[in-house]
Amino acid sequence: MHYKPISTADLNQVLELKKYCFEPSHANTPEADILPWLEKGVALGGYEGEKLATQLLVFPFVSNVFGVEMKMGGIGWVSTYPEYRSGGHTSQLMRESLAKMRAAGQVLSTLAPFSDSFYRKFGWDVYFENTEYRIPSDALAL
């Protein structure tokens, strides 16, 4: 397996791997959904020969932390075909993404994990929790 940035020439492979691992989330065409991110972000792939076997994208964001804007890398579309899982390939991409983010001055990173424990070993952890309460209006005192 060799690792390298994914070029837009591999768009079809990116779309196939994303489609295999994720449900479509909105009405955009797959190309409209992913192409701008391939051009603006950092897409990293693990290739077996010419076949894209694993991928992730680092989205360029800015986060406001106590009034200070800081560059942030948003990790997304982490996906690997089943036959390449448990081989350390995703781990390699995660390490490479951290190096790319550091080089780009992205001191923060965020993701929406399928598993907290999987990403915790790379240094990500839950930094907020959202709790929603629904109180019927007739339960409130007037």
Results as ranks from 00 to 15, higher is better:
residue 118 F to Y: 13
residue 60 P to M: 01
residue 96 E to C: 05
residue 130 N to H: 13
residue 40 K to Y: 02
residue 47 Y to M: 03
residue 102 R to H: 03
residue 128 F to I: 07
residue 45 G to W: 01
residue 62 V to P: 01
residue 38 L to A: 05
residue 134 R to F: 11
residue 117 S to K: 13
residue 134 R to H: 14
residue 44 L to A: 00
residue 12 N to W: 03
residue 22 F to T: 13
residue 95 R to P: 08
residue 49 G to R: 10
residue 133 Y to W: 09
residue 62 V to H: 13
residue 135 I to A: 01
residue 95 R to G: 12
residue 37 W to R: 02
residue 51 K to H: 13
residue 37 W to Y: 04
residue 25 S to Q: 07
residue 7 S to K: 00
residue 104 A to C: 08
residue 61 F to G: 07
residue 57 L to Q: 02
residue 3 Y to A: 14
residue 84 Y to I: 05
residue 87 G to W: 05
residue 119 Y to G: 03
residue 90 T to A: 12
residue 115 S to C: 04
residue 29 T to F: 08
residue 127 Y to T: 11
residue 107 V to Y: 06
residue 40 K to T: 14
residue 111 L to N: 05
residue 112 A to C: 10
residue 32 A to Q: 11
residue 34 I to F: 09
residue 104 A to M: 13
residue 22 F to R: 11
residue 50 E to L: 08
residue 135 I to N: 04
residue 123 G to E: 12
residue 5 P to V: 13
residue 53 A to F: 06
residue 42 V to R: 04
residue 112 A to R: 11
residue 25 S to H: 08
residue 23 E to T: 11
residue 80 T to C: 02
residue 27 A to M: 05
residue 9 A to K: 06
residue 127 Y to P: 06
residue 39 E to W: 09
residue 67 G to F: 02
residue 129 E to H: 07
residue 60 P to F: 00
residue 80 T to Q: 01
residue 99 A to P: 05
residue 17 L to R: 06
residue 56 L to H: 11
residue 36 P to H: 05
residue 74 G to H: 03
residue 127 Y to I: 08
residue 84 Y to R: 06
residue 55 Q to V: 04
residue 26 H to S: 15
residue 22 F to E: 09
residue 14 V to C: 06
residue 95 R to H: 15
residue 130 N to D: 04
residue 75 I to L: 05
residue 22 F to C: 11
residue 130 N to G: 06
residue 34 I to E: 00
residue 27 A to C: 03
residue 107 V to C: 08
residue 50 E to F: 02
residue 67 G to S: 06
residue 26 H to E: 14
residue 11 L to V: 08
